[in-house]
Nucleic acid binder design. Structure first.
Length: 479
RNA sequence: CGGGGUGUAGCUCAGCUGGCAGAGCGCUUGGUUCGGGACCAAGAGGCCGUGUGUUCAAGUCACAUCACUCCGACCA
């Protein structure tokens, strides 16, 4: 359409270079900027607004289910981190250490929190003494630091923002229920609000969280067929409680160890949104978390009261609870169309002199560019309906991508063939032996994603060793 | 951490066998425009990533270093 025009902003097409396409969107939709601190990004207002919307939604969910927010220290003394063996082994290679306070060398190194299990455990040891003190359902919104070697904006940065829930319970059953209840909330957040279909399941022992007894996950598929672990929920049993000497007197005055969980989602989800819904014109945002749901673009705005009308519409839409923005800048309409497509705004409302004569306006959907003429006096109902339809449509598109890129395999050869040329999810049976899982990873390059709750029977035997299969597992290349 | 690529204006980049720092877009001001990235005119804007070396002379050559990026390895 614009071959003869000088495009101000252009992005690499995802078919040409998916990684560059991703980076282009991050920069040109003004989501993030690089900083002089390697591996750390500036989360710009537009991306932060998306994160705030995610926070608002999920915070509401956990408050409703009895959770409370707290703030924990940013530093963990080395001795505290050392208390749980598996946990420290898992995290030690990627923690940042503080060794000086002012000009003085510290007697004990301080770790910048990579996750806060140890701090929560120490605190729980202080405050939990009786079954009457349980449960504690705590959460914190904060940033954590992991010294990653390879970094990419949102997907893997040395500092990232997240929520970490840490709960402690009287019984195993209660803690197990909490772990799965939270996983359901993640599924709800992802599917209903972020329009991202997920595969819900349990991690294999090899892939589970350091220190956890069981790790559950919701795995999403990106446009390129790679997996993004989008939320995890861990059941700890009483392992941490024993390591940190958390004990309580139960109903029979017997000293017991409580059972714990932890769970988290992070700003990585923003990367997931980009790679699930975005296209070659830029971002496409799910309406529930879009900072701007409707952008109003006036056409010939200095003529015939156009600008006044546009301002009036903005006011009306805002009053109806719609996140609307009028762009009254001096850019041409065409420029604005492209700009807000880049930013993924779900609906564009065009209003010009012709529309005003007719008492209507033009609504354009970001996902398919479909134009609808809409009477001005029905906007308050038409727009929420369209936003709802929009959410369903992009969910369906993502769901189709997921379903079209899962294949069954009965042998290592079939697994290798399945991902030749393009990343995919591969469903295969597994005997449960970690050795076979390792062989699959070595030979195909795919780690296991999860053991889905929705099991299918593909065959009777493990494709590696031929022994009886215990589970169907989804394998895939991940971010 | 290993291998490749790139660092020059806000952005994308040109700058040959060393010899005055360049273009397009963006930005500012004024005007005409406005239904898919408008046009005219006048401006502003540079420690050539950083450091050391070679040279009469370095954006250009050498070495080092830092950052970004891709591919591996690693990674809740």
């Amino acid at each position: 359409m614009a071959d003869d025009k000088k495009l101000v902003t252009q992005i690499t097409s995802m078919e040409d270079d998916f990684a560059q396409w991703y980076t282009d969107i991050v920069k040109k939709a003004e989501l993030a900027d690089y900083s002089s601190m390697k591996g750390c990004i500036v989360v710009r207002p537009y991306a932060y607004a998306i994160w705030e919307n995610i926070q608002h939604i999920f915070d509401g969910m956990i408050k409703e289910t009895g959770h409370e927010n707290v703030a924990m220290p940013i530093f963990i003394p080395e001795s505290l981190l050392q208390k749980e063996k598996d946990h420290v082994e898992g995290f030690a290679p990627e923690v940042a250490w503080v060794t000086y306070g002012g000009n003085e060398k510290l007697e004990e190194r301080l770790c910048v929190r990579p996750t806060s299990e140890t701090l929560f455990c120490e605190h729980y040891a202080h405050i939990v003494h009786s079954y009457r003190d349980l449960p504690k359902l705590y959460n914190q919104w904060c940033s954590v630091v992991r010294w990653e070697k390879t970094t990419r904006p949102f997907l893997r940065t040395r500092e990232f923002w997240w929520q970490e829930g840490h709960t402690i319970h009287e019984t195993e059953a209660e803690a197990r229920k909490e772990t799965l209840d939270i996983l359901d909330l993640y599924e709800k957040l992802l599917t209903e609000y972020l329009c991202m279909p997920v595969i819900k399941g349990r991690k294999t022992d090899k892939e589970k969280f350091a220190g956890a007894e069981e790790t559950y996950t919701v795995e999403a598929m990106m446009h390129d067929g790679k997996a993004l672990q989008s939320g995890t929920s861990h059941y700890f049993g009483d392992g941490f409680a024993k390591a940190f000497s958390i004990q309580f007197a139960d109903r029979n005055n017997k000293l017991c160890y409580p059972h714990q969980t932890s769970w988290g989602i992070s700003t990585r989800l923003i990367g997931g949104i980009i790679m699930t819904h975005g296209d070659n014109s830029g971002l496409v945002l799910p309406p529930a978390i879009a900072p701007i749901q409707v952008v109003i673009v006036p056409v010939a705005m200095h003529k015939g009261g156009v600008l006044e009308k546009a301002a009036e519409l903005e006011k009306r839409l805002k009053a109806a609870g719609i996140r609307a923005k009028l762009d009254a800048s001096e850019q041409t309409p065409g420029w604005k169309y492209a700009e807000y497509e880049m930013k993924g705004v779900p609906i564009r409302l065009e209003i010009g002199p012709r529309d005003i004569e007719n008492g209507s306006c033009v609504l354009v959907r970001r996902d398919n560019r479909e134009k609808t003429v809409c009477a001005l006096d029905s906007l308050e109902t038409a727009i929420p309906e369209m936003l709802c339809e929009f959410g369903k449509a992009i969910y369906k598109k993502a769901k189709d991508n997921l379903e079209n890129n899962i294949v069954e395999a009965h042998s290592l050869e079939e697994m290798k063939a399945a991902i030749e040329g393009k990343a995919r999810f591969v469903k295969a049976m597994w005997c449960g032996d970690e050795e076979c899982e390792n062989i699959i990873k070595e030979q195909t390059g795919m780690p296991s994603r999860c053991i889905p709750f929705e099991q299918e029977h593909i065959s009777d035997v493990c494709p590696v060793c031929g022994k009886p299969a215990k589970h169907m597992v989804v394998f895939g290349i991940s971010y």
